Simulated assay, not measured.
Amino acid sequence: MAGTAARRPMRADARRNYERILAAAEQSFADHGANASLEGIARRAGVGSATLHRHFPSRRSLLEAVFHDRVEALCARAREHARSSGPAAALFSWLHDLNAYAAASHGLVASLLHDGRDADLLEQNDDCKKMITAAAGELLQRAEQAGEVRPGMHAEDLLVLVSALSLATEGHEGDAQAGRRLLDMAIRGMRSHPCERTTDFGS
């Protein structure tokens, strides 16, 4: 995980503070963009500014940690779906998880894109990109091997699709619901038998 504090073992209280800061930062960045107040994040986490800066010496290190933490959580969800659902259901449920996160975090994404100073986080964080692409690829491969989705799709295309849907519906009334509806339409096109009834995987 990004951040110097994550590269060495932490005491239990330090780990709790670290996790509180990450949770507060994720919500603050989603609400207010990449320039969200670090002091506000510290207050939301219930820690002092010195504690925040001890764990995350710079805004950039905190942004990197938030991205990495979310990617790890999404990859864990992919494994959970693979264990508990059939191949196509696992893939489509996970795409809805990814879509929900993209919708929840679009304030941060839009801020990065428009501000430009840290926009490379979206493109140059190779570890996160590899992790999320591998998770998508494994689910897609299982669904293809089971004959439940059309052949010839690529994991990278699925990630671009979800990102594009999030950006396309940003600012619309009921944007999260619109994103889910559009993703369901795309999912119907992915199926090897598109006429099959689409389950509400976003529920």
Rank of each mutant, 00 (worst) to 15 (best):
E144M: 03
D126V: 06
R20S: 09
E19L: 14
D13S: 11
I41G: 05
R16I: 08
F29P: 00
T4P: 14
R43G: 12
C75N: 04
M10V: 10
A14P: 10
A103F: 14
A82D: 00
I132V: 02
A5N: 09
S93A: 15
D126R: 08
Q27W: 06
R43M: 13
T51N: 07
Q145A: 08
G86N: 02
R83V: 11
D69F: 05
L91V: 10
L108Q: 13
S49T: 12
A34T: 10
A89G: 10
I41Y: 09
A73N: 08
R117A: 13
I41Q: 02
R20I: 13
G86I: 03
G40S: 07
H81A: 09
N35F: 11
L98C: 00
H96A: 10
H53N: 09
N125S: 06
H53L: 14
I41H: 03
S105Q: 11
A30W: 01
A78G: 00
M10T: 10
L112S: 11
L108I: 12
A65W: 01
A14Q: 08
S105M: 11
A45L: 07
A102P: 14
D31G: 04
N99F: 03
A143R: 00
H81I: 04
I21Y: 06
Y101A: 06
L122C: 00
H81S: 02
A24P: 05
S85W: 11
A36S: 05
N35R: 14
S84E: 12
A14T: 15
A103W: 12
T133C: 04
R7V: 11
A90W: 13
D13Q: 14
V109D: 09
L108S: 11
Q124L: 07
A34K: 15
I132D: 01
A30F: 09
N99L: 04
D115E: 07
H55R: 07
N125L: 03
M131Q: 06
K129H: 14
S105P: 08
F92D: 05
E39C: 12
E26R: 15
E39K: 13
K130Y: 05
A102S: 15
H81N: 10
L62C: 00
I21D: 02
Q27N: 08
E148R: 09
A45F: 07
